[in-house]
């Protein structure tokens, strides 16, 4: 399946990746080739085959509802690129 530049741009936006023109060109070609290989799975008959989401079967792994200490605010905010008034600071929120 060949991917168009438009599709690459759409996926890049969905993934929040700004790509250069060069990257878009390169990815369109590379991803098309990889997808071509990946599409081999369509040759397999998987009718009535259930999907495997987990490699080892486990269920109901639960935690008791008991509070444990949180991290110090100073510690976590020190990791942040920008903070103010005990909060993380982010640029102007635009829709989309």
């Amino acid at each position: 399946m060949a991917l168009t530049r438009d599709e690459i741009a759409r996926v890049a936006h969905m993934a929040r990746l700004s790509l250069s023109e060069e990257e878009i060109e390169g990815f369109a070609e590379q991803l098309s080739r990889i997808l071509e290989h990946v599409e081999r799975i369509n040759q397999v008959d998987v009718t009535d085959v259930p999907p495997t989401y987990h490699a080892v079967t486990l269920q109901n792994v639960l935690r008791e509802d008991e509070p444990q200490p949180s991290l110090e605010r100073e510690t976590v905010l020190a990791l942040a690129p920008e903070s103010e008034a005990g909060c993380y600071k982010v640029p102007k929120i635009t829709e989309g």
């Binding site: 929040r16 700004s18 942040a80 690129p81 982010v90």
Partner: peptide, 19 residues
Amino acid sequence: GVRYGFRAAQTGGLTEMYS
């Protein structure tokens, strides 16, 4: 780029910062 790690130099809004 919000809670830790690299953040690109500020230009536009949140979406642009992410990308």
